[in-house]
Each structure stands twice: as structure tokens, then as C-alpha cells.
Amino acid sequence: MKSLERSHPTVTLLYFLAVTLPVMLCMEPLLLCISLAGALALLFSRTGGRNIRTLLYFLALLLLIALVNPLFQHDGVTVLFFLNGNPVTWEAIAFGLCAGAMTLAVLCWFLSMSQMMTTDKYLCVFGALSPKLSLMLSMALRFVPLFTKRMHAVRLAQRGLGLYRDGTLPDKLRGELRVFSVTVTWALENGIHTADSMEARGYGTGRRTAYAEYDFHAWDGALLALILLMLALTLCGLLTDAVAVTFYPALVRAERGVLAALTYAAYTLLSFLPTLLTVQEKIKWHFLQSKI
């Protein structure tokens, strides 16, 4: 058993797509709560309280969305009060809250994804689909920090020449464009060496393969199968309206049956899967360490 982070990148990426798909498809309050709880549990189990500030920012976004919706949406039968002659309804607030919760859940999931999916993992996934695009991405990823460093060197050099002044705003702007321009020349002119180095090492002589450090083990296959199964069960529930909810004109939740229970169960397992794996790994380490 391995944590989601250490599984094959394809599995990691597909997990995050699978877990966010149901909440983006359907704004069902309970499903949203499960998703949110799962996303937060994963964040905290991995990084502790380090993301509090980001989360507070996300929370503010949720409240904003929840408040904005009733200002534009006046449907719904339960009128709470009037604002500037427009009705503010409970249904619109509920809808706004759900929309906000969806935003929050998706943001949290993608926050975890950004932490887990490093650039070389994306390259591994892309490489399987198109070796050439993956190579281009890899080259561009190298150039970004390189050019940033070069721009810094150019800024210093131009200042040392007395050609870059940052007194007034137009001066600074002109200076920055100058620095950018020098960097552009530098980057374009030296590209030829990179191209030569590629040719000299056989680029373009045939079909490329894409090498990646990651192996697809049996565990990855098993985990992927589990993820897809849980997703399929959840989608079954969603598409057959087993957990349907309507907001307008009045908030109505359909009768919840066995299928609904199955849907909730499947989605709960899906949402808490990475947390379980992380915790499991931590416990194992704890025991291993106490034996050492």
C-alpha cells in the first residue's frame, strides 16, 4: 500500500479529476459536505495547519458567493425580506451557499493536487500522450527559472552601465522593458546552441520515446480500479436522480432510498481514500520507528 502521492502520476491525477467531478455535476448539500470534509481531512493529514491562511481566503470567497447569489437571483418561494424592492429568498441563499461550498471544495482539492503533482509528474502523464509536447513543456519549464535569473542579471548589468533608472514610474517601466528586450535577444540567439545540442543527440531521427522515473505497479492498478469503481457508483446515483435536489421554486430533496445510501457511501470512500492511505502510512512508520 502506498499513499496517493507516491502512486503513479496518472493515478494521482485521475483521482483528483474523479473526486471533483461529482460535486461539479450536482450541487447536493450532503455530497458537498462529504467532499469538503474529505478535502480538508486530506489537507490537514498531509500538511497540518500550514494552509490555514489560504483556507480562510477560500472561506471568504464562499461567503461572498453565497451573499452575491440572492442579489441577482430572485426566484424561490420563501421570501425573507426585501432589498431595494427586490425579494431576497431563502432558496437563493441556499443555492448560493451550495455554489460557494462547491467552489470551496474544488479549490481545496486542487490545492492538494498542486502540492502532490509536481511538474515532472505532469510530464510523465503528458509524455505518455505526446512525447513531443512533453519535451516542449519540459524545455519551457527549464527556461522559466533560467530567464528569471537572467533578467535579474540583466537588470543589475544595465544599472551598472547607468542605463537603468528607477526613479519615476515611466523610468522604471522603460527600464523593465529594456531588461525584457535584452533577455529576449539573449534567449533567442542562444536557442541555436540548444537546438544543435538536440540534433547532435539524435533529436528528430525517429519516433521519440518518453522516459519517466515512475513505474506502474500492481498497486497503482488496484488503486485506479477502486477509484473508477467508486466514481461509477457515485455517478450512477447522480444520473438516476437518486440524490436529486431542486432549489427553485422551493428547496426539494427527493426521497432517499437504498441507491442514495450507496451513492453517499461510495463518494465518502472516494473522498476519504487519500486521507486513509496517508494516515495508514504514518501509523506504519510510527510502529516501524518504535521498533528501530
Binding site: 511538474t119 515532472d120 510530464l123 512525447p131 519535451l135 519540459s138 524545455m139 519549464l141 527549464r142 533560467l146 542562444n190 536557442g191 546552441h193 540548444t194 545540442s197 538536440m198 543527440r201 539524435g202 533529436y203 528528430g204 531521427t205 525517429g206 519516433r207 521519440r208 520515446t209 518518453a210 522516459y211 522515473e213
Partner: peptide, 21 residues
């Protein structure tokens, strides 16, 4: 600096062999 093509050391080592398929 200019001869390096990719962003990671391991990927750079693999580059020539990737090109040759």
C-alpha cells in the same frame, strides 16, 4: 547552459536515448 535541453537532471541524461527511441 545552452546545451541543456530539459528541466531535470535525470531527464537530460535520458534525452539522447529518448530521441533514438
Amino acid at each position: 547552459e545552452e546545451q541543456i535541453v530539459t528541466d531535470k537532471v535525470w531527464h537530460e541524461l535520458a534525452f539522447g536515448l529518448e530521441s533514438l527511441g
